[in-house]
Deep mutational scan, measured.
Amino acid sequence: MQIFVKGLTGKTTTLEVEPSDTIENVKAKIQDKTGLPPDQQRLIFAGKQLEDGRTLSDYNIQKESTLHIVWR
């Protein structure tokens, strides 16, 4: 499925993911596209910070959802 990651600059990155992907895995995909290391990424969805060990489905993140990224 496709999801979007929007940064503070307003730039949006598209990712191809599975609902079973962990947040850690998603951060690795973001690094592949942007070069930003996972330890500098904070992902937010529906006002919650996403924890590395959880999956996208744990947070009810579905296709075409938009996550927000904040740099540490």
Rank of each mutant, 00 (worst) to 15 (best):
L36T: 09
V70D: 07
K11E: 15
G35S: 04
D58K: 02
P38I: 15
D52E: 11
G53A: 07
P37T: 08
E64R: 09
T12I: 14
R54F: 14
R72I: 15
L56S: 00
Q49P: 11
K48Y: 10
T12F: 12
D52H: 06
D32N: 13
I61S: 00
I3D: 01
G53I: 06
Q31Y: 15
D52Y: 04
K33Q: 11
P19Y: 07
S57H: 09
K29Q: 09
P19A: 08
L43F: 03
T66G: 02
R54W: 08
I69H: 03
K27P: 00
R54S: 06
T14W: 08
T13C: 06
P19W: 06
E51A: 07
V5D: 01
L8Q: 10
Q62W: 08
E64L: 12
L15R: 00
T14D: 05
Q2T: 11
L36E: 04
V26H: 00
A28T: 10
T55G: 02
T9V: 09
K27A: 02
P37G: 08
K29H: 05
F45M: 04
T14N: 07
E18G: 08
E24R: 12
W71I: 15
T13A: 08
Q62R: 10
G7K: 04
Y59L: 04
T34D: 04
I3A: 01
L8F: 14
V5N: 01
G7V: 09
L36G: 05
V70S: 09
T9L: 13
E16C: 07
F45L: 04
Y59T: 01
S20E: 12
F45P: 00
T9I: 10
I30L: 10
Y59F: 03
K63H: 15
K29C: 03
F45V: 03
V17E: 00
D32H: 14
P19N: 05
E16G: 05
S65F: 07
V70L: 12
I30A: 02
S20D: 12
R42S: 14
D52C: 04
S20Y: 10
V26N: 01
S57M: 10
V70Y: 11
T12M: 13
S65D: 13
Q49N: 09
T14Q: 09
H68V: 11
E64K: 07
K48G: 05
V26R: 00
T55M: 10
M1W: 08
G47V: 02
V17G: 01
D39W: 11
R72E: 15
K6D: 06
R72D: 15
K27V: 02
I69G: 03
T22L: 11
L36F: 12
Q62K: 11
T66M: 09
K48V: 15
G10K: 04
I3S: 01
F4Q: 05
D39I: 08
L36C: 06
Q2W: 15
D32Q: 12
G47H: 06
S20W: 14
M1L: 06
T34K: 03
L15Y: 08
D39C: 07
Y59I: 02
K6Y: 08
L50K: 00
I30Y: 10
E64N: 12
T14G: 05
D32W: 11
M1V: 05
H68I: 15
I23V: 09
L8I: 13
T13I: 14
I61L: 04
T9C: 08
M1A: 02
Q62M: 11
I3L: 05
Q49Y: 12
I23P: 02
